[in-house]
Write a protein that binds this DNA or RNA. Structure first.
Lengths: 255, 255
DNA sequence: CGAACCCTTGATGGCGATCAAACGCCGTGG
DNA sequence: CCACGGCGTTTGATCGCCATCAAGGGTTCG
C-alpha cells in the first residue's frame, strides 16, 4: 500500500490499538486494491485466503443454491468481512461482489491468524467485529421470520433513517432489485410495498425516501424495542457510481 | 460448583487451554445450576449478566415480535450461548428456554469480559465460538431464503443424520412443533412436508426417522456443497425428559 | 436510435398460513 | 379404574401473501 494511505487505514477500529510492530508486519504483507463496480471478489466455497477490509465503496455478500440467489448482507465502510471464515480457516460461505467502485484492503489470512495470537489488541478487535456481525445476523434472521414483507421494508427505512441521525429525507443506497433480495422478496413486491407504505407515512420516489409520519411508520413496522448503538456511517459511502480517485481499477485477487 | 464437577467442566473447549490461575478465578465465581424443562432462563432485551454454558440438556433460543414467535436455534451440549451479548455488553437478542432438564454453567459476564483480556487461550476460544456461531447463522439465513419448506426439512434430516455419523435411523430431538418453528414453518406444514418426503426416500413415524434412499433425498434437498466439519454430538443429549442426576432443580438466575 | 436493463403495474398461480376437526397420548381427578 | 381435559399431531378445506408471468415506461449506453 502507498505511504499516504497507511495512517488512514491504521486508524480503523480493527487496527487502531495494535502494537506498531505487528501492524507493520501486517501492513507490509497486505495490499490495498481498487476494484470496479459489479466485480465478484470471491465465490462461496473457496478457501479463505484473504481477510478483506472495505475501506471505501460498497460490497454485497450473497449466497446461491440451485439457481436461486439471495443477498445476505451489505458491507459498508469501514468494516472487515468474512472474518469468520478467516479465523476458522474454512471456505467462504458467501460470495462477495462490489456494488460500487471499492477500495479493499487484502490481508493474507494465514498472517492474520498468526498475528491474532500475538497481538492482544487485534484479538480484541476481532472479537468485537465477530460479535457485532453475529448479532446483526441474528436480527436479520428474526426479522425475516417474524415480519411480513411490508413490515420489513418499513423497518429497513427506519433503520436507514436512524443511521443518518434520524434524517427524514435520504437516498436509498444501491439498486432496488438488490434491496428486494436483501429483504427477502422480489423487486415487484418491494415496489408494491413502497406503494402500501404511503398510507403509513413514507414516500419513496426513485431512490429518494421521505418519512412524513415517523410515529405512524413505527406503529406499522413495530421495530424491535432494543437496538445496538448505531454508528453514524458515511451516508455517501455506498452511493453507486461514486468515483474513487486512488489507484487504477481492478487487477483481480491473486491466489 | 462442586469439586467433582470441576474437572469435567475444565475440559470443555472454551476452558481447556486456559491458565490455571484465571480458570480458578472464573470457576470460583461461577456456578453450575440445574434447571427443569420448559423454564425460561432469560428474556431478550435483558442486560447480559451471565455467560451461559450448556453442559447437559437442551436449550432453545427464540425471538418474538408483535405476538409472533420463532425458534432461532437449538443449543446442544457442550456449547456456550449468548457469548456475543456478553462480550459486547449489550442486551440479549434472544430469549432462552430449556427444552429438557439442563445443567448450565453461569459465569458473571463482567468477569468473563475481564478475563478475556488477560488470558490468551480464553480469548482464542471465544473467537472460535463466535466464528462458528456466526457461520451457523449465515447458513441458517441462506437456507431460509433459498429453499422452500420441504427442502428445508430434507436438509435438516440429512444434517441430523450426518451428526449421528451417517445413521439411517434416528430420533428427532424435541417436539415437532418446535422443529417446525426452527425451520420457519407451521406444525401443519411440517407434517405435510414429512408426508411429501416419503416419495423422496425418507419416512418419519412419530419421532423415528428412517432414511431409505439417501441419494434420492439429497437430489431433492440439494444440500450445500461445503459444510463445516460436523462434530459428533451426544445423540441423547437433547432427548426431552432425559433426567439429570446432579443437584436439585431450579433456583432461578440471580440478578 | 435501438438494445438492455431497471422499475412499475396488472393478472394469475402456488406455497404455505390459517381455520377446523378428529385422533392419540398422557396426566389428573373423580 | 375410568372419565375427562389438555395438548401435540395429523388431515382436510380455505385464504392470503407473495412469486411468477406479462407488458409498458423510463433511463442509460453503445
Amino acid at each position: 500500500m502507498r505511504p499516504g494511505e497507511r495512517p488512514e487505514i491504521a486508524r480503523l477500529p480493527l487496527f487502531a490499538e495494535m502494537r506498531e510492530e505487528e501492524r507493520s508486519r501486517l501492513f507490509a504483507a497486505s495490499f490495498l486494491q481498487v476494484f470496479p463496480p459489479e466485480l465478484t471478489l470471491f465465490e462461496a466455497g473457496q478457501q479463505a485466503d484473504f481477510l478483506h477490509v472495505l475501506v471505501d465503496g460498497c460490497v454485497e455478500l450473497k449466497a446461491s443454491n440451485n439457481g436461486r440467489d439471495t443477498t445476505l448482507t451489505i458491507v459498508e465502510p469501514v468494516r472487515s468481512f468474512i472474518l469468520a471464515a478467516v479465523v476458522t480457516d474454512m471456505p467462504y460461505l458467501m460470495t462477495a461482489r462490489t456494488l460500487s467502485a471499492s477500495r479493499i484492503l487484502l490481508m493474507p489470512a494465514e498472517l492474520v491468524r498468526g498475528l491474532i495470537h500475538q497481538d492482544k489488541a487485534l484479538m480484541m478487535a476481532v472479537i468485537r467485529e465477530l460479535a457485532n456481525g453475529y448479532r446483526e445476523f441474528v436480527r436479520t434472521l428474526a426479522d425475516l421470520k417474524l415480519r411480513q414483507s411490508t413490515e420489513r421494508i418499513g423497518n429497513y427505512l427506519l433503520l436507514q433513517s436512524r443511521r443518518r441521525g434520524g434524517a427524514e429525507n435520504f437516498q436509498l443506497p444501491g439498486e432496488k432489485k438488490m434491496l428486494a433480495s436483501l429483504l427477502g422478496m422480489t423487486p415487484e413486491n418491494l415496489s408494491r410495498g413502497f406503494g402500501a407504505l404511503v398510507a403509513e407515512g413514507v414516500e419513496v420516489h426513485g431512490s429518494q425516501v421521505t418519512i412524513r409520519d415517523r410515529e405512524r411508520l413505527e406503529a406499522f413496522s413495530r421495530p424491535d424495542a432494543f437496538y445496538d448503538p448505531v454508528e453514524n456511517r458515511d451516508v455517501n459511502a455506498c452511493k453507486v457510481g461514486a468515483s474513487i480517485s486512488l489507484g487504477k481499477p481492478g487487477r483481480p485477487i491473486p491466489g
